[in-house]
Every structure is written in C-alpha cells, then in structure tokens.
Amino acid sequence: MKLKLTQNQKEILKKGWSYLFVLPILILIFASQSCNKKDVVDKDKPISDLSIYNLPSKWTNQNGQNVEIKDLRGKVLVMVMIYTSCKSACPRLVADMRNIESRLPDNIKEHVKLVLVSIDPEVDTPKRLKEFAIANKMDGDQWEFLRSTEENTREFAAVLAVNYKKIAPLEFSHSNIISVFNAEGELAYQQEGLGVNSDETIKKITEEAVKLN
C-alpha cells in the first residue's frame, strides 16, 4: 500500500514539472481573456429592465441566418413591421424607412441597423425577404429582415405596440409605426402614420447613435 502511494507520488512529481510549464501559459490565457472582456464591457452589462433584449425569441434573417434580438445589441435600431405581399400601406412604410436611412449623417451610419419584421411569417420566407430586399434596394448590411413563428411575431408586435390582423389571405390590417431603440434596446421614439415628416425620428436616431462614436 505504502509503496504504491509513493509510486503515485513520484508520478505526480514527474508530472509536476510539466505543470510548471503549463501554468504560466494558463495564466497568460486567462489574463488575455479578461482583457478581451474589457473590450466588450458593454455587452457584459446586465440588460436593462425595459430593454427588448429581454425577449428570448429566435428569428431568421433574409440570409437564412438564425438571429436573436439580443444579437443586435450595441446598435441603434429602427424597426418596422411589414409583410412583403402588401400593396397598400407597406410600400409607403418601406419608402419611409429608405428615406430615413438616406438622410442619416454619414458619421453615425455604422451604428444604425434598420430592421423590417414580417407579420406574415408563413409567406415571407427568408428567400422571399431576400428578394424583397434586393427589389427595394435594401440589400446593404444596414438592413435586416426578420421572421419568426406566429407567436413570437405577435409578442414582438405587443412590445412595439403594433396591432395587426389577418383580414384575408395575403392581406393584413396593421399599425404604421416606426420605432427607434437605443443601443441598450430601450424604446427611444415612435413615429406613427404614413408618409409623415421623419425629422424628429432622424433627430432621435442621431442623438442615440452619436453616443456610440
């Protein structure tokens, strides 16, 4: 018994040498990790109470990638709910979004993401969203088209205070609201109506985005 123990101890001692080499490397790794953490300190901050990043729902974008709402954290979000087969209000809402995007000052553009969420996930497949993005010249990185399940969509609409109802196949009645969220996902401003003056919306987006410069 005793002999065995000492043998074991010897082995441990032998291995101990290698630990001496490994240890500094481990320390280095940990040190560099904590440095990394400092760089993204924003993302480690707890999500605020009123933030949409509390929403756990999963979405798919126009490129077929899986997206969680909280993946968008750190950008000012301009969000609207639409459906691609819409012929009445949505084209104007989409035009409003494009107009807002084109009027954003260059120095903040990289901090802004414009998000269009489909209220018709059944029809609006990622492929269809992609086609819609291209057709409407909204194919840049600043544009994000999202779809999820019917239930997640209903919940998301509830957060945005957007009402919608399917009134026929390929026809929905819906609120025309463009919402601005700050980098922490808190509602900063809402623009209601179609073709309304977007000055105030752009001002709010700029205010929030400048903070990130």
């Binding site: 209903r154 609409a157 509830a158 205070a161 957007v162 009402n163 919608y164 109802k165 009134i167 009645s173 819906h174 609120s175 025309n176």
Partner: peptide, 15 residues
C-alpha cells in the same frame, strides 16, 4: 386574449 392587439377602432380600420 392572445391576440388582443389585432383590433382596429381608429383611422386604420378600413372595413
């Protein structure tokens, strides 16, 4: 109700 937010009583209601 689940879809309480599907109501339009304001100007947006069309029909």
């Amino acid at each position: 109700t689940a879809d309480f937010n599907s109501i339009f009583l304001s100007g947006e209601s069309r029909k």
